Simulated scan of single mutants.
Amino acid sequence: MRRRTRVAAYAICVRDGQVLLARSPGPGGVPEWVLPGGGMEHGEDPHDTVVRKVAEETGYRVEVTALLGVNSLRLTRPTRFGRSVDHHGVRILYEARVTGGELLPQSRLRSTGGTPIEVGGSTDLAAWQDLTAVPGLTRVPLVDTGLRLWRERPPAGR
């Protein structure tokens, strides 16, 4: 079985009782909310990754204010060619503060030419969501993990 490791960095941006989330098409095409962030490029520092990915997915410029923790996930996934891959995801979670930019959905980001974004990105919308509404959202488990780290600030980061 092929093995794959993916390192990614994500932001928890909370202000005025709301958290910044991005929307991604989930399994079966059902949209789900995710933390803004994503995979590191080869040679890229995780700090730079989260700043870049938040800008690409939301239109905002952010300042990283804290390292909240590291989360690891391992699972076996089928590939589109029928083989399985042993996937190990290492997710670095940062607290970040918005310092500039404008919240725009992906379609408008692509058409404005203002903020560089990834072509064919994995998110189509970004929005502030009330913290109290998050439990009712269709979301990936990493959203809950990130918010728990943000609330609890565990010294060991887990």
Results as ranks from 00 to 15, higher is better:
P31E: 10
V119W: 13
R158Y: 06
R91L: 12
V19G: 05
L68R: 02
Y60C: 05
R91I: 02
V143T: 03
G38L: 06
L35S: 07
L131R: 06
D144R: 07
P27H: 08
G43W: 00
D16G: 12
A11M: 11
P36W: 06
I92N: 02
D86F: 06
T49I: 01
V62G: 00
E56R: 03
T132F: 08
Y10E: 09
L35T: 05
V70I: 09
L142M: 14
T112S: 15
G100M: 11
D48F: 00
M1N: 10
T65C: 05
L142N: 03
E57V: 04
G120I: 10
S24C: 14
C13R: 01
E152F: 03
A96F: 08
R15D: 15
I12P: 02
K53M: 09
V70A: 05
V34M: 15
V62A: 01
R158M: 00
G69D: 04
R3H: 15
V34L: 14
D16C: 09
L142C: 07
G100H: 10
L21H: 09
V62S: 00
R6Y: 11
D48N: 06
G38K: 03
L93W: 04
M40L: 15
V140R: 09
E44C: 00
V143F: 07
H88A: 10
V62L: 03
R158G: 11
G101M: 09
G17P: 11
Y60R: 01
E41H: 05
C13Y: 04
V64Q: 00
T99M: 09
V85C: 10
V7N: 09
V51E: 05
A96G: 03
F81H: 13
L131F: 12
G38H: 04
V64M: 02
G43D: 03
R3P: 14
H87R: 14
Y60V: 00
R151S: 10
D16P: 11
R15V: 13
R52L: 03
L147V: 10
